[in-house]
Design a binder for these strands. Sequence first.
RNA 1: GCUGGCGUAGCUCAGUGGUAGAGCACUCCAUUGGUAAUGGAGAGGUCGCGAGUUCAAUCCUCGCCGCCAGCACCA
Length: 651
Amino acid sequence: MIHVRFPDGAERQFPEGATGGEVAGAISKSLGKRAMALKANGVVHDLSSPVPDGATIEILTRDAPESLELIRHDAAHVMAEAVQEIWPGTQVTIGPVIENGFYYDFAREEPFRPEDLALIEAKMREIIARNAPITCETWDRERAKTFFRDKGEAYKVELVDMIPADQALRIYRQGEWLDLCRGPHGASTGGIGSAFKLMKIAGAYWRGDSSRPMLQRIYATAWANDADLKAYLTQLEEAERRDHRRLGREMNLFHFQEEGPGVVFWHPHGWTMFQGLVSYMRRRLAGRYQEVNAPQVLDKSLWETSGHWGWYRENMFQVQSAGDEAEDKRVFALKPMNCPGHVMIFKHGLKSYRDLPVRYAEFGAVHRYEPSGAMHGLMRVRGFTQDDAHIFCTDEQMAAECLAINELILSVYRDFGFGEIVVKLSTRPEKRVGSDALWDRAEEVMTRVLGEIEAGSGGRIRTGINPGEGAFYGPKFEYTLRDAIGREWQCGTTQIDFNLPERFGASYIDAESNRQPPVMIHRAICGSMERFLGILIEHYAGHFPLWIAPVQVVVATITQDADDYAHEVVTALRTAGLRVEADLRNEKINYKVREHSLAKVPVMLVLGRREAETRAVSIRRLGSRDQTGGSLDETVTALVAEATPPDLRQA
RNA sequence: GCUGGCGUAGCUCAGUGGUAGAGCACUCCAUUGGUAAUGGAGAGGUCGCGAGUUCAAUCCUCGCCGCCAGCACCA
């Protein structure tokens, strides 16, 4: 007999070798039916696994949170079976569970067509209805390889070879179909239920390697019940509604066109926001950083020295005189980064240790020739503006600088309404420059700083380590923020650089009159201003707080009798520093309200004869069905207060 | 860059081997109104670009460009 304990503390005995399924059935007939998997000592197992003696166990039904992964994993197998049933000869490869669903990669000459998804889905429902038991077998390697080789499953043979020799090969069978898989799985295909949906077809490289063949991936989502599926689909619609490319067009903020792939045409309202963001950042830098401006176009030799020409040449724009007769045949590059320019400025004239730290900031427009498939609205462009800065300091100053940067980054994010931040330290990669002693020192300092960041955050900041993810020239912190619908965006970064000062021979004179290389810290807060604006657009879904909104107030008249007063109101608001537009058109107020609501103008002041006579305004806020009244003077004061950027507000 | 899909008016989209349509937006006329579409009229397109097939191509074929989804990339 074996003893087991249940989560509620109850203990029971079962015959030696009893499986999870037998235990479930012994507890109650209905649990036996509903059981999906066995959880023993915190680990999920197949229901057919024997229960270990002395374990704390739980019988998982499909409502258990842990079961969702099983449902998705089972569904992936069923999808593979469905595809092979419809198109025999299609090879199956891998089909893991991912966030919100699963995918399976297939190898087949003929591409899947969008309309095939419905076909596959119907077949899946057929297979699920058959409700075949899912069983596990252990095969030896040769049997597995022979089996898959005979079936023409070359990728599976490769997978068998990749499994470490000391690990057992597990084969999961459902009806006539089987797959190599480490499990665990549910008890039968019927447990998958009906709350799933095939989402899209995409190409994906075998083993994520662009030098290997491209497979066809089918993405799907799956949930424990229809309500969860529906909620997920609604959430996707919500994300689509917030898409900054759509809002950028609807709100007339910017556009792209064919002649300029990946470069932004900023329209007046969009540029107002862009400049507002830059102004805000300038105020935040004032007193700590010196703003500089390095050239757009520099001789290729400088980029050879910096190392960019060697590493990133394919991604750089080369420029030359277009004239055939040009005397200067030199090759220049459009700057892809600001750092070499800043090092040049630092190097200009001797620097003393007394000058350090030197902090140069630039809103630097950079150009990178991004692969065509990488471009995505404002999020990934070929021409963008970095809120870049480089700090030249001594080794002793490094920690304090990192902490100061951290504080600045966090307070900026807070001002834009981002509460949850993750900071991760990326440590030395295999391929790197700089001595181990330098890396040891920098990582030691940054690890300490990371601890201080977490301790000083009062729980707001989560921290972590990305081992081996550092830049080749030094370790870095990466700042990730979470937007209103839970998506994560990596924006800020602080990077130590052992490479550039040395390559350019930058130095300062220390207290003993010796030349010393400075520590160089790169840092960005927004990262790309374009991308950050894209994130803000999606975060706020276009409903910007007053201080960010490109048009803060529209003054709309009901009749022409109010025109004179409307001009007065506009002047008063504008004098007070607000961004105002007047709508005196000969249209009904319903029409105007609708139009400005769709344009997401935060505040509408509606003026008719009544307001003109009493020097009042009728205020309608975006998203509100009703309106409030107020005097002109009070309203101006209140709006000015609300429109004041957070960094200028009196506490 | 790779795989697949797409490209028709400013926007959202119909459509056909015989050189094109709707709604909204735009212009003009009437209407001066009280918080999400007043009525009428008008104008607007080299159907992404270039070749080919055809008596005839927006439609079929090929190439290129761009966009979308995913993969790869992201100093």
